[in-house]
Design a protein around this nucleic acid. Structure first.
Lengths: 203, 203
DNA sequence: GCCATTCTATAGCGCCCACTAGATAATGTG
DNA sequence: CACATTATCTAGTGGGCGCTATAGAATGGC
């Protein structure tokens, strides 16, 4: 058995509380005092359990991605075509970005936007995660082009960037107060820009 | 003539320098020390000329909107239809958001994202400016619906939000490093989602 | 020349930040 | 029981923040 005095708080619950704070206001705007209050844990216990503020934030990001960000990968994996995957992704984003009782928008986008030099690596990490998201969509699109489902002259990169633009723009609008129903219409509207699939062309 | 010792720096140039700082990193992440360095002005002169940090930021926003944000209103005023206005707006955004030698993206979107309570009013002011942008696009769309240029079942609000989603998403992608050419394609792609204009329907 | 006025420079204010030293409490092990 | 180990608490640390008191420098008015 583990020796010494046992931890008196639920580490997972505390991490979830920290994630909500960071999601809501971002890395720099949330102070250690805010975190100890929200997590119900005094500073020394926080540092003992999670390291420093950056490490805690990174763990919060992991937790966020597991719980709220998995829908993108699931859509890309489970749907039969890139088009259906993106359509599902955008519609599910409308829900996730306006969940009642949770912060609006996407933590990967808004949690490290205004950065002092000391948190540049945090911001850089999120940029890489976002760009990896684009790359995943781009690979899915390229696969459909290869398979003849999408026209051979499709610009996979630009189309993937377009999808990401809509996704990130929706997150911004969710933060600004747009409701879920409107975002659903936006998601539907956005799909009208998707190129005609080869099967759609008669003859 | 104005009495007393004359100011030894160019107030407009100093304001432009401050605007660049705020545009690049946002309200909270730019310290007074950063500003005095960038503006070439010591703190007491800065406070004498611009009031406090919030007031300076607000003036920087005004300056930014005058110099870099006017293209939206111009497009909405000068183009004959909402469609052409939005198309022009998105294409010009691709340029403005990737200007060489200037920060990427849009200051109105990214300059007050991560906020401590003391800058909530700053963030709220930007939210209102952004929502006013949506409203302006929506009015232009509604006018075209009224005029029979757009289908009568057009959801003017949702379409305006879609346009804003694309605009803001482009700004985010510009910050993440997407180049102007790709954003131009994105802008063009996005317009494919625009509803068919009534004139386009034969018969 | 001399004063009132206005700007500039040095130096530092109080406050909050992320973080921690040191004492104490609660456990497993013998 | 005593002891090693680990967590917790109080009470800070040094440092950067926005901002400013005070003294000195540069102007116009007389």
């Amino acid at each position: 058995m583990r020796r010494g005095r046992p931890r008196s708080f639920d580490r997972d619950a505390a991490l979830r509380a920290a994630t909500m704070e960071f999601w809501d206001r971002g890395f720099e705007a949330v102070s250690i005092a805010d975190l100890t209050r929200a997590m119900g844990v005094k500073a020394p216990s926080l540092y003992a359990a999670f390291g420093d503020k950056k490490t805690l934030f990174e763990e919060a990001i992991e937790s966020y991605v597991r719980e709220f960000g998995g829908f993108i990968d699931r859509a890309l994996e489970e749907e039969p075509t890139a088009r259906r995957a993106v359509a599902r992704m955008l519609h599910e984003a409308a829900s996730w970005q306006t969940l009642p009782g949770y912060p609006r928008g996407c933590m990967l986008i808004s949690a490290a936007t205004n950065c002092t030099p000391q948190s540049n690596e945090i911001a850089q990490g999120l940029v890489e995660r976002r760009n990896e998201g684009i790359a995943a969509v781009e690979r899915r699109i390229a696969a459909d082009v290869e398979a003849g489902i999408l026209p051979s002259d499709t610009d996979a990169h630009a189309l993937a960037v377009y999808c990401t633009v809509v996704l990130h723009g929706m997150a911004q609008q969710a933060r600004d107060g747009v409701d879920r129903a409107t975002l659903e219409i936006v998601a539907h509207t956005a799909m009208a820009a998707w190129p005609a699939e080869t099967d759609d062309i008669p003859g």
